[in-house]
């Protein structure tokens, strides 16, 4: 988690009272943020501890007892998990599904969004409206027709099928998000590049994409999280061999009921990857990328 620092520089000449108020305000904000962070961190921490305790101690007591009666923590659950071929394969399946689904959506939507935002062609407005319209289409109505279609195409139960479905349903939002961001880039900037001799592709690669980094980073994280955590689509379209970890963990749950050690380990693994992705991209969330370009 990131710590938000509220800076109080640049307030040298204000009255004492207003300074006190602003200090207090900052304090309140920081306490609030700490509380929110705590709320999120406690379960995560609990999950981590549970995944590090063996089955017996997990069934005997809650994870918080380690504070009063520290038991020996163990990595054996993780060893078991790696030994468990179903869970391990499902973990890899999740990677095989989530990575292409994210990459394809980001690449396709960035190209489409550039076209919709900056290239003039007949029907552009209609196409944009259509994309926005698709946003309201719920996934559920498409499950059965698409399942039928996949069946006849031989895609049912394959990773490719799951990926295609995720891409198709990820695109409208992705295009919408990026188009709006691209359209917000000052027109002068795009035109300056045109005057400088750039073709559309060069403008896209060398002007729009670098400026749109924060939007692209957000989209990447959203899409990755969405696909990584998806259960519904995978339940419908994946079979035993192509099932991602969400499906596999659920199956484990039914099988053993109380195997909290394996479940918490799997869940923790499944959670830590998106977190890593988030941390990897968060440095692109810099505000004010456009600062200084115009005016």
């Amino acid at each position: 988690m990131t710590v938000v620092e509220v800076s109080v520089t640049g307030a040298p000449r204000r009255g004492v009272l207003s300074r006190v108020v602003s200090r207090l305000g900052n304090g309140v904000v920081q306490v609030g943020l700490a509380l929110v962070a705590l709320f999120w961190l406690v379960p995560v921490f609990g999950l981590l501890i549970a995944s590090l305790r063996d089955e017996a101690s997990n069934t005997a007591s809650g994870w918080w007892t380690i504070f009063t009666a520290p038991t020996s923590l163990t990595l054996s659950n993780y060893a078991d998990l790696v030994g468990n071929s179903t869970v391990l394969r499902s973990f890899l399946n999740t990677v095989y599904i989530a990575v292409p689904s994210t990459v394809l959506v980001v690449v396709i939507s960035a190209l489409a969004a550039y076209g919709l935002a900056w290239i003039e062609f007949p029907g552009r407005l209609w196409l944009t409206t259509l994309v926005v319209g698709l946003l309201v289409m719920p996934i559920q109505v498409a499950l059965i027709p698409v399942a039928k279609l996949f069946g006849s195409l031989g895609l049912f139960g394959t990773i490719t099928g799951v990926v295609l479905f995720h891409v198709a349903f990820g695109l409208p939002f992705a295009i919408f998000l990026l188009r709006n961001f691209f359209a917000g880039i000052p027109r002068d900037l795009v035109e300056a590049a045109r005057m400088d001799g750039a073709r559309e592709w060069v403008i896209f690669r060398r002007v729009v994409l670098p400026i749109a980094k924060p939007a692209i980073a957000s989209l990447t994280i959203f899409q990755f999280l969405w696909v990584w955590n998806d259960l519904l689509v995978a339940l419908v379209f994946a079979d035993q061999d192509s099932a991602p970890i969400t499906v596999a963990l659920r199956a484990q749950l039914r099988q053993f009921g109380t195997n909290i050690d394996l479940l918490s380990t799997g869940a923790f693994l499944s959670m830590i990857v998106p977190l890593a992705v988030f941390l990897a991209f968060q440095r692109y969330f810099v505000q004010g990328v456009l600062a200084g370009s115009t005016k």
């Binding site: 002068d188 900037l189 300056a192 005057m195 002007v207 990328v289 370009s293 115009t294």
Partner: peptide
């Protein structure tokens, strides 16, 4: 092959 100076300058921010 003409160059333009924009009122907003339109510098590439990155």
């Amino acid at each position: 092959d003409v160059a333009m100076v924009f009122q907003s300058y339109a510098l590439y921010p990155h």
